[in-house]
Amino acid sequence: MNKKKHWYDYLWIWSIVYFSLGFFNILFAWLGMIDFMVPLLFAVIGGNKGFCNRYCGRGQLFAVIGGSAKCSRGKAAPRWLSSKWFRYAFLVFFLCMFGNIIFQTWLVASGANTLREAIKLFWTIRIPWGWTYTAGMVPDWIAQFSFGFYSLMLTSTLIGLIVMIFYKPRTWCSFCPMGTMTQGICKIRNNLSRGRS
């Protein structure tokens, strides 16, 4: 039985567009903040995981490549990958890495550091990415944040693609930091509303 497709079922295209844009102009990396803020708004205001459930382009991309295009072994992932301790540890790690991006941005803004026109994959592999930015287009700190944030987005997608190949297509979703954070918020909200009634 084929389900009726909605416009939001094609948001995986957005994921591809986002990463493609980063190859031409790194400043487009800021658009990734949409994927950062919208899930939180859904959780905090709506008390649901509407973003993960319907609008997450990345989850859809894994479903399309791993599911429809059959680029996944489809095996069950190890249980620890979706265990609470691993999910929360990964969330803390990700937040620390995000904090580091903010810190590096602040160092550049304050003049303590100069802009580094490179991205870092898996937090270790530095790749020159200078062709995507012309110095002086915007204040250096805006560009520094772009390089850092794009690195984080690309790294997490690559991790997602690796686990997609080895395990089920959407294995990334089982430990995605945004998913963990929004589910945590929803659980707190749910407990609070139950306590009130």
């Binding site: 039985m1 389900k3 859904f42 959780a43 008390g47 649901n48 995981k49 509407g50 993960c52 459930n53 319907r54 989850g59 479903a63 979706s82 999910r87 959407r170 979703c173 089982s174 430990f175 995605c176 998913g179 963990t180 929004t182 589910q183 918020i185 929803c186 659980k187 909200r189 749910n190």
Partner: peptide, 21 residues
């Protein structure tokens, strides 16, 4: 993990994610 992959897959629309939990 309330990701909603099952909800999308279900041909009977018998699954919902309860309050994001």
């Amino acid at each position: 993990v309330a990701c909603g992959a099952c909800m999308k897959e279900c041909p009977r629309e018998a699954i919902r994610i309860y309050r994001g939990c």
